[in-house]
């Protein structure tokens, strides 16, 4: 097997902003003193006159962005997921969400894979928070390729967009022939025994789980669900009908994230077993990202266990 390139999704976010800066000058980028980490620093370096650092004041930054958007201009704000979605939640809801303004929130360092910074910075709740806001689009790219495509798509979106990026370098899963569309899940592997719906860095784990399951004679369907909201109901309903069992896999709390979004659709349409893999109602802690993903059970082997559990429920 050839060497797989690994790169953090936040890198594609920052570099795509720079590319778009060359193509158009009708948008502003803002950060809250984390530009080097979030990668908006690359845009700052390329277009310093179009970049505004708000300092360590995320609530103010989000409402300022709302004001800019209310004048008919595009604006991208960035911080860590913990602060963009968590600290500034009410500003996102009331300043941005309620008037349905064109603000793109590029939230980096999401999930447990933040690593050494520990629980205060490991945001496992942002998808849950953001998807409860009416009219909010929530995107969680799986790899570098998808992250770059998603940033471009967000520019064309009507209304606010929350984009979730990671700190950890993750394998590149897709090549340039990949087609990204907001609101569309993508079937990556065909299968009829169970469907694994994954998002973010769990997509790569799901593809590994496919191979592990196949070796045991289990044909799993693999779906990449980059857009958590609006969720692709059709691909979920089809999976429920055709495979009769679903596993969701996310680097996020099992409360309110992808697993909940999928369950909401399944419960009301084709009620089949849904087994959720994610962070189980607990805080993270410090450690190397890879070890944390092992410890919190966010690996292909864990998906395999859940897939078998889902199939057992289907056959019960």
């Amino acid at each position: 097997m050839s060497e797989v390139k690994t790169v953090a999704t936040r890198v594609g976010f920052g570099e795509t902003l720079v590319e778009m800066g060359a193509e158009r000058d009708d948008f502003i980028v803002m950060d809250a003193d984390l530009a080097a980490a979030t990668q908006t620093g690359k845009f700052k370096k390329a277009y310093p006159e179009r970049f505004y650092d708000c300092g360590i004041a995320e609530q103010n930054m989000v409402s300022i962005a709302a004001g800019i958007a209310a004048t008919g201009k595009k604006v991208i704000v960035s911080s860590f997921a913990m602060f963009a979605a968590g600290r500034a939640f009410e500003q996102v809801r009331n300043s941005v969400g309620y008037p349905h303004l064109n603000v793109i929130i590029g939230a980096t360092h999401a999930g447990i894979s933040v690593g050494e910074d520990g629980a205060t910075h490991q945001c496992n709740e942002d998808i849950a928070l953001m998807r409860t806001i009416p009219g909010m689009t929530v995107i969680n790219p799986a790899d570098d390729t998808e992250a770059r495509m998603a940033v471009r798509a967000a520019f064309e979106c009507d209304g606010p967009v929350y984009m979730r990026f990671g700190r950890l370098a993750v394998p590149v899963v897709f090549d340039e022939t990949y087609k990204f569309e907001i609101g569309k899940g993508v079937e990556l592997r065909e299968g009829s025994d169970v469907t694994i719906i994954a998002t973010g860095l769990m997509v790569k784990e799901a593809l590994e789980a496919y191979d592990l399951l196949k070796a045991e004679g289990i044909n799993a369907r693999i779906v990449n669900m980059a857009t958590i909201k609006p969720i692709d109901r059709d691909i979920i309903i089809k999976a429920a009908k055709e495979t009769g069992a679903i596993v969701t896999a996310e680097e996020h709390s099992v409360i309110g994230g992808l697993g909940s979004a999928v369950s909401e659709v399944v419960c009301e349409t084709v009620p089949v077993p849904v087994v959720k893999l994610g962070v189980y109602d607990q805080f993270g802690h410090s450690g190397p990202a890879a070890k944390l993903l092992d410890e919190f059970g966010l690996r292909a082997v864990n998906i395999v266990e859940k897939a078998k559990a889902a199939i057992a429920l289907k056959n019960a």
Partner: peptide, 21 residues
């Protein structure tokens, strides 16, 4: 020109408008 009601946010949005201008 702006939806308001949650206190403290309006001035930030006004700052955003002034910056945009």
């Amino acid at each position: 020109d702006m939806s308001t009601g949650s206190l403290g946010q309006g001035i930030s949005t006004a700052v955003g408008m002034a910056l945009s201008s």
